[in-house]
Structure formats: structure tokens, C-alpha cells
Amino acid sequence: TRSSDLNAHANPGEMVTIPLIINNTQDVYGVQVFLTSAPAYISGIAVGTTTYHDFSNWTVEGNNVGDQYRILLFNTSLNNPLPQGTGHIADISLFVDANAPIGTVVQLFMEEVVVVDQNNIPMHTELFESNVYIGTPDAIYSIGDVNESSQTITIDLENTAPVYVTELDLADAPDGIQITNVAPTGRFNGSVDGQSGETEDGIGYILAYDLASGIAVGSGPILEISYDIRMDTGFFGDVITWLSSVSSADASLNAIPSSGDGFAILDANLNVETDILAPIKFSLHPAFPNPFNPTTNIRYDLPHAGYVVLRVFDLAGREIRTLARGFDLSGSRSVVWDGRDNHGRNVSAGVYIYRLEASGLVESQKMVLLK
């Protein structure tokens, strides 16, 4: 069994959500994780399960134990285990200390992890660390559009300073992805170093540069990665991939604060039926109920996998809450807004705008919060 919670960034005094991913080769009946941050600027707030599995008869708990955050998911009925495969099973809500220094990189460690079978016998586990950058870095890399038919992934960059050199590590679990080519695309017209590709330890290494003009300030795709799924490595089900390490440099080759966000889950057994069931149109639906108090549901449709951002703004254009940020598969989604801002505070009654951005498309709707 492999478990991971991936990279992110957040400002001091704000909440950040990281996914809990599992790849298991046998049915799982329980998961317990103790999450530790170093330096200790991040504390746990809540854990919530996803729609990957029916967790209705599972115990789901999150609580602080000393300087650790304990996460427990346990199938109390013992008849509804997590099946073999790879899935995003839960989201962990964390709070960044208001006094955390900008520019600090906080490491998140999963310790004392126990994953059990039907007989409550622990399984062998492999863990992956995560990093949270405190503040808003000048260069934010993310996994963009994923085309499983052509087996390509784009790497997007949102940068507030010109970037002349980019160095990325693309990890996968299990080790099932083989990088076959890396090419410039979109906003990047430079070169990809010949060493880019799969390394001996299974990590995808990418070095790209444009020492003449760099990548101008902006956002959008910069690289297209072609890949193969290796079927001879003994893994079961899908493969997760994420940016495990990123770095950037300016024209003088000085380091630029950077972070790599998001992940993608690639279907190792892609079938036509899955594609047919995907929505045919990008759409953001009216919130329901609307007006509302205290919560409302926001639904949206994604015809293609890609990087998604769903945010709430007030009428002055100030961001109130980020409800979703990261890679998502094609399909219909539903997100609940509880009338709180990014700091966990209740907002005042009034009209709010919720905006969905995905694959270069943007849609907005209005909703009214009553008190």
C-alpha cells in the first residue's frame, strides 16, 4: 500500500487543503495516519472523504494529538472495504499559523501509518512526503490538461516574475509512467535539455530554459509531456502522478520562489465507456439553494480532465474563499460552501460571485447569503 498527501501553498493565517491518496493492491478496511509538520507552523482542522468510495458506514475522524494530527478512516461494518486500486480518498483541511514566515517550506510527514485488512492485520506501506510553501511564490507550477487518448500531460505555469530556467521532478505511484518526450508548448519557446526524461529511480526529470527572453509574466501551459503506461511492473489499477520537486531561476540564474501544486490520476485501463459518460460541455450550474443559509451546493461539469479553480468573490472583486484548486478528472462535481472565508470566519450576508476556471474557460454565477 502506498499513501501520499501532496504539495500546496498558502498564506499565513489561511486554510489549505491537501488530498490523501492511496494505492492498494488488496482490499483496505482501515487507515490511520499521524500527520506532522516541520517546522510546526501547520495544524490539522478537519478531514472529509471524497466520492471515490461510499464511506457512509465508515468511521471518519480527525483530531489533534500533541503536535500531530491524527486521521482515522475505518470500515465499521467490515463489509465495505476500499477496493484495490488508486484513489483520492480524503481531503485534509489544515491551518497555517498567522506568524509563519513568508517563504518557509513546511514539510508534512505521515508517521505511524497503519493500513489494515479484514483481520485488522497491518499491511506493508510506502509513504511520500509533502511540502507547503508559506506565502504566494513567484512561480506556481501545476499539472494542466491530461489527454489520456494521446497520452499527453501539460505543465502549466503561473508566474509573477520572468522565469528563465525551470527544473521539475514528476513522481508517480506506483512506478508505472514512462516519459517518452518533453516538448515546449504555449508560452514557452525555449529548449528542453536532452537529459529530460525518466531517471533510473523512476522519477521524471525535466530541465527547460530560455536564457534569451525567458517566460514572461502570465499563466498558461509551458510544456507537453508524452508518456506510456508500463503494464509490466505488477501494479494494480490507476497511476497517480504529481510534481514532487520544482525550482526556477531568473536571468542571472538566481533562484525564484516556486511551488508545484496538484496531481493527476491516469487510468491504466482506459475504456470507451468512461469517455462516453463524461459531460459534453463545460458548465457551472446555479447554486442550490439560492438564496441560502447556512450552506449551498455548487455543481459544475468538466468534459475533460484538467486543472480546476473554483473561488468565491464579493461584489468588490475580493477573493473570499477558494473551494477547489487542483487537477480533476472529467465528470460532474458538487462542492459545498458553508459561508466562511479562507480564514474560517463567517462572512456577512449579501451577494457573492462564484467563478469556475478550467482549461482556459471561465464561468461565473451569483448567489445570495441570508442571515
Score class of each variant (00 low, 15 high):
208 A>N: 07
144 G>T: 08
168 L>S: 06
243 L>I: 05
63 N>K: 10
274 T>C: 04
256 I>M: 10
144 G>F: 02
84 Q>A: 11
110 M>T: 14
267 D>S: 09
186 G>E: 03
186 G>T: 04
75 N>D: 15
192 V>W: 03
339 G>D: 03
341 D>C: 05
132 V>T: 09
163 V>G: 09
132 V>N: 09
251 A>F: 00
95 F>A: 06
63 N>D: 13
53 H>R: 01
334 S>A: 07
32 Q>K: 14
82 L>A: 02
238 D>W: 02
36 T>I: 03
338 D>F: 00
279 P>F: 02
316 A>H: 04
118 Q>H: 06
98 A>T: 09
325 R>N: 14
346 N>R: 01
291 P>Y: 02
169 D>V: 04
151 Q>S: 11
365 Q>K: 11
19 P>A: 12
19 P>L: 10
195 Q>I: 05
106 V>F: 04
52 Y>E: 11
273 E>L: 07
330 S>G: 15
289 P>R: 01
138 D>K: 07
5 D>C: 08
146 V>C: 09
338 D>W: 00
109 F>D: 15
240 I>T: 15
244 S>T: 11
131 N>G: 12
256 I>Y: 03
352 Y>S: 00
267 D>V: 00
172 D>S: 13
91 D>V: 01
36 T>N: 08
301 D>M: 07
365 Q>L: 07
213 S>K: 06
287 A>I: 10
6 L>A: 07
99 N>C: 04
342 N>T: 08
119 N>M: 12
311 R>K: 13
338 D>L: 00
273 E>Q: 08
158 E>T: 11
107 Q>W: 00
253 L>D: 12
184 P>R: 02
369 L>Y: 03
211 L>R: 01
348 S>M: 03
307 Y>Q: 11
165 V>I: 06
268 A>T: 12
249 A>M: 01
260 G>N: 14
85 G>Y: 00
54 D>E: 07
64 N>D: 11
296 T>Y: 00
255 A>K: 09
57 N>Y: 02
121 I>Y: 08
70 R>Q: 12
130 S>I: 09
15 M>R: 00
107 Q>E: 09
328 D>M: 07
229 I>L: 13
244 S>I: 08
140 I>S: 15
29 Y>R: 02
96 V>W: 05
51 T>A: 15
145 D>G: 00
366 K>Y: 04
124 H>N: 12
357 E>F: 05
71 I>L: 06
267 D>Q: 04
169 D>M: 06
297 N>V: 05
54 D>N: 10
168 L>D: 05
33 V>Q: 13
84 Q>T: 13
219 S>R: 11
281 K>Q: 14
11 N>T: 03
106 V>Y: 06
169 D>L: 08
11 N>D: 09
297 N>Q: 10
78 L>I: 02
80 N>V: 01
183 A>R: 11
180 T>C: 09
340 R>T: 13
219 S>D: 15
113 V>E: 14
42 I>F: 00
98 A>N: 12
18 I>K: 12
309 V>D: 10
25 T>L: 05
168 L>Q: 04
161 A>D: 11
207 L>V: 08
354 Y>K: 05
277 L>P: 02
126 E>A: 14
223 L>T: 01
